[in-house]
């Protein structure tokens, strides 16, 4: 339909002066403690944070935070969920899942954003449909800002990826902050260092 027409109009109407693409600096500040900064940013986004040692038991941490949640799915090897991922199930079949535990592949110190993608999370709906979400982040994967995060991620290798920076929220009624809109009602981030 409109393709040719649109492209022709754009070619005629676009500005003719050259406008170069800028080089984007890294904006790194070496004096910032990445883990501390990440921790603070997440607090600001209403997430729960646990700083753990590599050898600490994930199950213990998660069970003590969410003792009542029964139906869980995990993509983290050290935590066994109550249910397994079933690739034949339709996404709405996961509606009764109370807890999803997943790996945060890259994390951003400046704003608390954590990258979750279908590289390690085969069912896209899980981090959104679950009532509560736990993301496990290796402190070594925390980068200063979004610029470094995008550099670390290869878009050719994924079909879907999302930065999650807290539990879902809304302020659509008189700007009153309400945690728990459509996505998860709570987010716990376990930082392993």
């Amino acid at each position: 339909m409109g393709r040719q027409e649109i492209l022709e109009k754009l070619s005629v109407n676009k500005p003719k002066a050259e406008a170069k693409l800028p080089v984007i600096p890294s904006f790194e500040d070496k004096t910032v403690d990445l883990v501390d900064s990440f921790h603070k940013a997440l607090l600001n986004n209403n997430a729960t944070i646990v700083r753990a040692k590599y050898e600490d038991s994930l199950s213990q941490i998660i069970d003590s935070q969410y003792p009542l949640l029964k139906r869980s799915i995990s993509t983290v090897p050290e935590f066994e969920g109550s249910a397994a991922i079933n690739l034949d199930m339709k996404p709405n079949g996961y509606d009764d899942i109370e807890l999803v535990v997943a790996i945060g592949e890259v994390a951003v110190a400046e704003n608390g954003a954590i990258w979750v993608s279908d590289h390690l999370m085969p069912v896209r709906i899980l981090p959104f449909i679950t009532q509560y979400l736990v993301l496990v982040v290796d402190a070594l994967n925390i980068v200063p800002k979004m610029h470094q995060a995008y550099k670390k991620i290869d878009p050719e290798k994924i079909g879907f990826g999302v930065f999650i920076s807290g539990p879902s929220k809304t302020g659509d009624i008189e700007q009153a902050l309400v945690i728990g809109a459509h996505g998860s009602l709570g987010l716990m981030v376990i930082i392993r260092e």
Binding site: N45, G112, F160, G161, F163
Partner: peptide, 9 residues
């Protein structure tokens, strides 16, 4: 906000 809660690609 420093970033929105979900930035989906």
């Amino acid at each position: 906000q420093r970033i929105s809660i979900y930035t989906s690609h």
